[in-house]
């Protein structure tokens, strides 16, 4: 690790001020990507702005037909929250599939989606539920937020404050884990809210999380795994590495999509 200055602002305004003043400063949320990278000397931000003391960034709240989760809410809190279990059980389950207990007690939803790791779980939930990412500046639709591998629509000095999830009628997440890292080799999140059907895939794409319009269309006719039988997505654009070929990942997208739909309808 290289030396850095550690800031612990108490308010969002202070945090934004520190970011604005120090161009190379990095935000520290749960730290489970940033700190290992720093320990390996692959990153060396001169300033770290720790968000853990900033008021109002964590918590889970039901607001009308939306579930609002503060950016600094830990995965374990989402996983064990009765409110989340009641409103979007698939989201609670997803949070429980992230990493191990140590990771889940430190890692945060805001940190996860700001990092937009192509194998992370939360981006699939955000895109698969049609969430809105709320920052100190604006509200960004999930469809506009994830712009590619490790890349988002966030601007400099923009801080995620919460994520708002519309409550679906049905939803499920199926994750096939990379055996080593236990990140998603492929993860599929599916939801149905009225006529709005969304199916988002993490892990598989060479360019990060994506939706599968052909699957969504098929599910609009009938929200059943049968609607997806025989359907597949092309291997083009899929990631390929020692853990799985592009063909394998494309195949898993179909398998997990059918399983997710089956789980969503309780079969």
């Amino acid at each position: 690790m290289y030396a850095f200055t550690f800031h612990r602002p108490q308010t969002l305004r202070q945090a934004v001020g520190l970011l604005a003043k120090n161009e190379e400063a990095k935000l520290l949320a749960g730290g489970h990507t940033l700190l290992p990278t720093m320990k390996l000397r692959l990153a060396g931000p001169p300033q770290l702005v720790d968000l853990s003391l900033v008021d109002g960034l964590s918590g889970i709240e039901l607001r009308g037909r939306s579930l609002s989760i503060g950016a600094m809410t830990r995965h374990n809190d989402v996983n064990t929250s009765p409110v989340v279990h009641e409103a979007i059980p698939a989201l609670a389950k997803l949070a429980g599939l992230i990493g191990d207990p140590a990771v889940r007690h430190m890692g945060t939803i805001g940190g996860s989606i700001a990092n937009n790791d192509p194998n992370a779980d939360y981006p699939a939930a955000c895109l698969g539920l049609g969430a809105t990412i709320i920052t100190n500046k604006r509200r960004i639709k999930a469809d506009d937020f994830f712009t590619g591998m490790f890349s988002t629509a966030l601007e400099p000095a923009e801080i995620i404050t919460k994520v708002s999830f519309p409550i679906p009628k049905k939803a499920a997440y199926q994750k096939f884990k990379n055996q080593a890292s236990r990140f998603a080799l492929v993860g599929v999140f599916v939801s149905k809210r009225g006529s709005d059907i969304r199916l988002a895939v993490t892990g598989a794409g060479a360019n990060g999380v994506f939706r599968v319009p052909s699957f969504e269309e098929a599910l609009k006719t009938r929200f059943s795994p049968k609607s997806l039988e025989g359907m597949s997505i092309p291997a083009d654009g899929m990631n390929s590495d020692i853990h799985g070929s592009a063909e394998y990942r494309a195949h898993l997208v179909g398998v997990l999509a059918r399983r997710a739909v089956a789980e969503a309808i309780g079969k």
Binding site: N178, Q179, A180, S181, F183, I242, H243
Partner: peptide, 23 residues
């Protein structure tokens, strides 16, 4: 079932951490 030590043809260890080497 799990442990795979993979070198590329230049001799770089691809599975050099627990992100890629499955215990």
């Amino acid at each position: 079932l799990l442990e795979h030590t993979v070198y590329d043809d230049k001799g770089q260890l691809i599975t050099g951490s627990y992100m890629d080497y499955a215990m």
